[in-house]
Design a protein around this nucleic acid. Structure first.
Lengths: 199, 199
DNA sequence: TCCTATCTTTAGCGATCGCTACAGAACATA
DNA sequence: TATGTTCTGTAGCGATCGCTAAAGATAGGA
């Protein structure tokens, strides 16, 4: 017994996601958002609470769409090495696609952001990805594909840094091929499988 | 026949540099700047023109102080490989120092910045560094330390991405040791000196 | 000591920020 | 068709943005 919403909530969220992705959290004004979403401020606040609530929903949507390749790669490949390699190669493709903003939203959207909550939100996602990388590399050690004593945390940090460097390069205009070259070169740093035989 | 300036221009510029370094170009307000510099807005505008002019001077100052290690490493080492390795290891140290903001100002200060001029200014500095890296690697090829046909542009892009990843990790709180581990792992990706003998 | 040039301070400009009160429009129910 | 409920558009809130006009303060030269 009431008037129904006159816009598609999911479409509006997707439009907001694109703006946050391109401009970052703080540089995206509510006026920019409402223009992109095709609605007025009161509709935005009724549907999403406030700007930060809208951003959090946009990040969740990003994670289960554009950013889902990371979790998929880490979950589906048989070995840690293959998981990391697929993750990097898919990132090269995804970060340079011409049909959406370049780079990774989780990595860039809160850079130079004064809101500690927003900064920590994205940092938490990045830490979770790093932990997932480490877990797969740990699995390679357990399976004997890497020597015991391998610095798996250091390797995870390295490949997390690689992804972040690829995202920054993509934002600077690097092509898919350049990003793929970074990914391949990074895989050349994967440690040798040879175990140092102790006495 | 006039009143002299009541503040140290260089000290004020250094204070502004720190604010821009920590918060980025747009998130640093003139009010924040004047508070940090210990002056009032009209003094800032009389001495530096406007916010963007102050930022450009701050970037120049950064390049010849905190950021000078890159040019020094690339200029002073005998081989390209040693130059890149020293650059990465000094970056690990510099980006994690507790006495100033973490990471690299050239890399982070214009992220999510709406001003195309400011964005392009810093992007130009990054491209120049990448070109300098490539030049040193080209030298290794010319000297026979790397095989002819080595993808020197790709290698330069890779090590530029490494620096950017290290800067992002430093901003996320990575320690000097973690950054050094990234640098060492990245050097493990340096191509082998063996030349593929053609028929 | 007075004049004058330059700096500093106070105060506030128009524009935009995130956000919301209010009233009219639109729809499900009776 | 009348009623009640929710959404939408207009219009504007206080705060902050980059920036500056006007006036008071401070120095060197006459």
């Amino acid at each position: 017994m009431a008037r129904r919403r006159g816009f598609d909530r999911d479409e509006a969220l997707e439009s907001a996601l694109r703006e946050f992705w391109r401009h970052g959290y703080e540089a995206t004004s509510v006026a920019t958002l409402t223009a992109a979403m095709g609605i007025n401020p009161p509709s935005l606040y009724a549907a999403f609470g406030d700007k930060r609530g809208l951003f959090e929903e946009a990040v969740q949507r990003y994670q289960r769409t554009y950013g889902a390749f990371t979790a998929r790669a880490l979950a589906e490949e048989p070995t840690g090495r293959e998981a990391v390699e697929r993750m990097l190669r898919e990132a090269a493709d995804e970060y340079s696609r011409p049909d959406h903003p370049h780079g990774c939203m989780i990595i860039s959207a809160a850079v130079n952001c004064e809101s500690a909550e927003v900064t920590e939100l994205l940092r938490g996602f990045r830490e979770a990805t790093k932990a997932a990388i480490k877990q797969r590399i740990d699995g390679d050690v357990s399976a004997g594909r890497l020597p015991p004593g391998t610095d798996t945390a250091g390797l995870a940090t390295f490949y997390a840094a690689i992804i972040q460097g690829m995202s920054t390069q993509a934002r600077d205009g690097a092509t898919r091929e350049e990003l793929l070259a970074i990914a391949d070169r990074a895989m050349a740093a994967w440690p040798s499988a040879e175990t140092v035989t102790a006495t």
